[in-house]
């Protein structure tokens, strides 16, 4: 009897290993293949400058994707990350350019603006029981409007604070700060997700919310925490965006949420909750930007780029479904 039990637990471990890593290997493999294909197709692709460009393009979307991954693991969704990011960058502009406050206050203020949006999202969802899709759709529209109102629909430039641009565009060993910040964020959030109470309850709520509640977990409170966390991250993305463009562009932002959600999904985060990793999402974010960059270098018209990206997203999810069936 004992023998049999041991034997079956070994088998269980093996299938576990297979199922958990397959999607990531698959995603990582496709990233490598895409890289090779584009390098062969165009001599300009693998050049250092272009690769730095890809990294830079990934940074903002990557930070958003990491944030939305947390929310998706709880089996929720956050549609307000794109326009919320813009709202945060506008607020940063308001603090630094309009109010002439120190850069550090502007940065923290921008992040706080994002956190506030996330907190409101979480509160509406968990206390008023409004589905995440609706609650964050509302927040998406509201933040878009607020950005335009506050800025008077005009970009806010950071010409008076030249150091602000350095936050994203300064570099260490020719790697832009924005990229380093993105990696830092990924490492920290990965730690939170795998090693802290917040992370554990994120998975627990997404896996079986009722069981989590019956285990005495304050589901509403932790959900607010997760959405606030997502808000902090899109706030940070807003600061990075403003710094990179050296201006807060109030009309920008819509559509970024879809790229971020796509990155998370390609990376193996399950929209039904309970599953997802930061590493997967980071790979997913890179797949999105390598694809965009590569197609542009091959002078594929932008319209067609969208068609290809869309197909890739659906394909990635289909692969995931096939994998689960087995």
């Amino acid at each position: 009897m004992q023998n049999k039990v041991t034997c079956s637990s070994v088998i269980q471990k093996k299938t576990l290993l297979q199922s958990d890593t397959t999607q990531k290997l698959l995603a990582f493999g496709s990233l490598i293949i895409m890289f090779i294909v584009f390098s062969l197709a165009s001599p300009n692709f693998a050049k250092f400058d272009n690769i730095v460009g890809i990294l830079l393009a990934t940074a903002v979307n990557g930070v958003l994707a990491v944030g939305v991954t947390l929310v998706i693991i709880t089996s929720g969704i956050d549609l307000s990350i794109g326009t919320g990011m813009t709202f945060a960058s506008v607020m940063t502009g308001v603090f630094i350019t309009y109010c002439k406050l120190p850069i550090i206050i502007g940065v923290l203020g921008g992040i706080a603006a994002g956190a506030l949006c996330g907190f409101i999202n979480g509160t509406i969802i968990s206390r008023m029981k409004i589905p995440p899709f609706i609650a964050t759709l509302g927040m998406m529209m509201a933040t878009k409007g607020m950005s335009l109102v506050i800025s008077g629909a005009k970009p806010i430039y950071f010409t008076d604070a030249p150091a602000f641009n350095k936050i994203a565009m300064g570099s260490i060993a020719s790697i832009p700060n924005a990229v380093l910040i993105f990696f830092g964020v990924a490492i920290v959030v990965n730690f939170i997700l795998t090693r802290t109470v917040l992370g554990r309850y994120t998975f627990a709520m997404g896996s079986n919310e009722e069981a989590a509640r019956l285990s005495g977990i304050n589901v509403a409170g932790w959900k607010i925490a997760v959405y606030t966390m997502c808000g902090i991250l899109f706030g940070l993305a807003g600061v990075l965006m403003a710094s990179r463009l050296n201006s807060a562009q109030p009309a920008l932002g819509q559509g970024y949420e879809m790229d971020a959600i796509a990155a998370a999904v390609i990376g193996g985060t399950s929209l039904s909750g309970g599953e997802g990793t930061i590493l997967g999402t980071v790979i997913g974010a890179f797949i999105m930007s390598v694809l965009t960059n590569g197609l542009r270098i091959l002078s594929v018209p932008q319209e067609w780029q969208m068609v290809v990206t869309g197909s890739i997203v659906v394909l990635a999810v289909y692969m995931d479904i096939l994998r689960r069936k087995k």
């Binding site: 554990r200 896996s207 989590a212 309970g274």
Partner: peptide, 19 residues
């Protein structure tokens, strides 16, 4: 009432994890 995505240990100690 278990959470399928968590491990055995995580399920047993959910809500009262030693920290």
């Amino acid at each position: 009432n278990l959470m399928p995505h968590l491990t055995v240990a995580q399920n047993i100690f959910i809500g009262r994890e030693p920290r």
